[in-house]
Design a protein around this nucleic acid. Structure first.
Lengths: 366, 366
DNA sequence: TTATGCCATGGAACCGGTTCCGAATTGGGA
DNA sequence: TCCCAATTCGGAACCGGTTCCATGGCATAA
């Protein structure tokens, strides 16, 4: 009975060289003569030999994989970041191990298994706050950690200034003359330390104060992160009668959709009866013509993953901490007039099987 | 200098037992006396010992990881399936290695690295057709392969009948009295073998034929998978004047959004001037009140991943091949009944059940 | 010719768990 | 008291690459 699996030893024997030489060929060492190299390569080809990842991992001491901790993966904003991360890692030849975290217990479980068993060479955390003690442990083990949409001192991270963003959004509404501006946000304590909604709320308060407006906490409501929940909360605000808000800042576009729904339900015209602004600039806000605060989601993932790649190559992540910029995207839900047309149409051309996009579309894959 | 890493040997020496015993404790063998077990556990605790994954992988011959091949991850329908897959794998203690595939070259690259290097124990393919020769290779290597939103003979898979779905959607429009029904779909050749759009088109043709309607290929258009592209294609159909379609079946909700946009642009009322139905029942279609064909996206991921877990446990995936059911979700974009209407988004619109509140909200995380 | 040095190479030791075989201990029954 | 079986345990061999050291060959310099 012949040995079933073809190992480096099989190749070495077959090619009449030592195992060391085969390994050197595998790793592209220049310590091998051209003649020997090609002989070994031929043998590998002939035997259909493939190196076993786990064996290599063991002796090299690294896995060539990166763990990605993701908070509530189904959220569109989180998804967009994840896409960026995965693409960069993939290009760098690193495996992306995705770990979905929906509660504190899951976070702990994933962190233990990932960190302690050294399943990955580095960890990227998306929109998730890693507990203090875990960070120190990760540091002690010398495992690179990059934060995306989050920030901790002395750690490489890519983040935005949510307070400033909340401020910008609220100022936008104030600048349109609104005085009774409501706020719809996420619940405070999710156990995952996602603070963006609260930070945006802080910015909201700042803007009110700067405008000399006393905040009315009756116009502030928090709930689960879904448009249905936001609709319910908003509905309650609208029932305040003459004390109802004339404008609402929703801490994310998903919530803003709920606000719009509630307005429809109450027969309120947008933006005349109630102006609305969201946050994130998701595709939905463009489709529904909802004003929002743009933040570079995909880019945050790309930049974060790039930092990780640098760190794993032993380089220093160039801008150690990177703040991405925000800007208000005014649309029909706050401005009276519909400024730009919701749909920009592309030129089309006749094709054999109907119509094909001529330009501006997604690139055609072969 | 003491050895830095704490291995099983360190623990064994410290606890005064053999390495075999420590390993047995690690793996929960019942061949260890209670006294010894607790002594070893104490020592492990004291030394803060953690087993190294890659070492275990090497000797056990498995990685406890599953590769997930994903076609164009940013598509909402694909995302939803992915979420289901990740959750199930995570519960089973398996790593989810996500591989985004956007073109044929990437598919080949990922398949090679994943399969040949045995980086994973099994492969789940989402909305992606694996080339024939790869399938045979995977089979030969005895690596479990599960298809989600795809189907091949003799392979475990979870799929829908896209032809039937297209038929249902088109029939729905026909039943409303439409005779000139257009079709907006994806480009035929993406190199990734995603055939759902074409299958739905086949269903569309079937429905027309069953109704005794000669298909008008001027009403059929294909392009990249984006609402902008769909809007452009639809726009061209609307410019056919009196020959324009009175109803359109878009092969996905994303495309249906584009159809709606184009209608707005041309000042056409929906559904009066043009009825629309999409496919997938994404959240957006519910928000925009677009009729659609519902398919269980999350469920497909869950079921697919469950099959994988079974296979890795040496069991047989119970229903080897599983077809999930479809149903038409009639909404305002096709029914005459006026409900929340996208074209009147910011107008006053009364809806019979326009708002669903106070139920079905996201569960609070502790 | 001999000394010096570089290059290519073979192969043992090693990475850190797992597994299996054989040995030691224990307990029960005759 | 002795024997046999069951239980528990130690440790060598092994998984399949990587690395480092020793070696032999060849060319160049002395």
């Amino acid at each position: 009975m012949r040995k079933r699996t073809i190992s480096i030893a099989t190749v070495a024997a077959e090619a009449g060289v030592g195992v060391g030489t085969v390994s050197r060929v595998l790793n592209g060492s220049n310590q091998v003569s051209e003649a020997t190299r090609s002989r070994v390569l031929n043998t590998m080809e002939r035997l259909d030999y493939r190196p076993l990842r786990s064996a290599s991992s063991l002796s090299k001491g690294r896995t060539d994989a990166v763990g990605i901790l993701v908070s509530v993966i189904s959220r569109p904003s989180v998804m967009a970041r994840l896409v960026g991360v995965i693409d960069v890692l993939s290009d760098a030849g690193l495996d992306a191990v995705v770990l979905n975290v929906e509660n504190r217990a899951q976070l702990d479980r994933h962190l233990s298994s990932i960190i302690d068993q050294r399943r990955v060479d580095g960890i990227i955390s998306i929109s998730l706050r890693i507990p203090e003690e875990r960070v120190t442990r990760i540091r002690k083990l010398d495992i690179p950690l990059v934060l995306v949409d989050n920030s901790l001192p002395n750690l490489p991270c890519v983040y935005i200034d949510d307070v400033a963003g909340g401020n910008m959004a609220t100022k936008h509404l104030l600048s349109l003359g609104h005085r009774r501006v409501g706020f719809i946000g996420d619940n405070k304590h999710t156990g995952l330390g996602m603070s963006s909604s609260e930070d945006r709320y802080a910015g909201y308060l700042m803007a009110l104060e700067a405008a000399g407006i006393e905040p009315d906490f009756d116009l502030v409501a928090r709930g689960p992160h879904s448009s249905e929940a936001a609709a319910a909360l908003t509905s309650a605000l609208f029932e305040l009668g003459k004390h109802r808000p004339t404008a609402i800042f929703a801490s994310s576009d998903t919530l803003a959709v709920g606000v719009i729904k509630a307005a429809q339900h109450h027969g309120l015209k947008i933006p005349d009866d109630c102006a609305v602004i969201g946050f994130d600039n998701l595709e939905i806000s463009s489709i529904l013509d909802i004003s929002t605060v743009n933040q570079p989601l995909l880019e945050s993932g790309i930049k974060g993953a790039s930092k990780m790649v640098s760190l794993l190559n032993g380089e220093i992540a160039k801008p150690h901490r990177e703040e991405l910029s925000l800007d208000v995207v005014p649309r029909g839900s706050s401005l009276g007039i519909q400024r730009n047309h919701p749909t920009k149409l592309y030129g089309v051309v006749e094709g054999p099987n109907g119509l094909q996009i001529l330009q501006g579309g997604e690139e055609l894959v072969s």
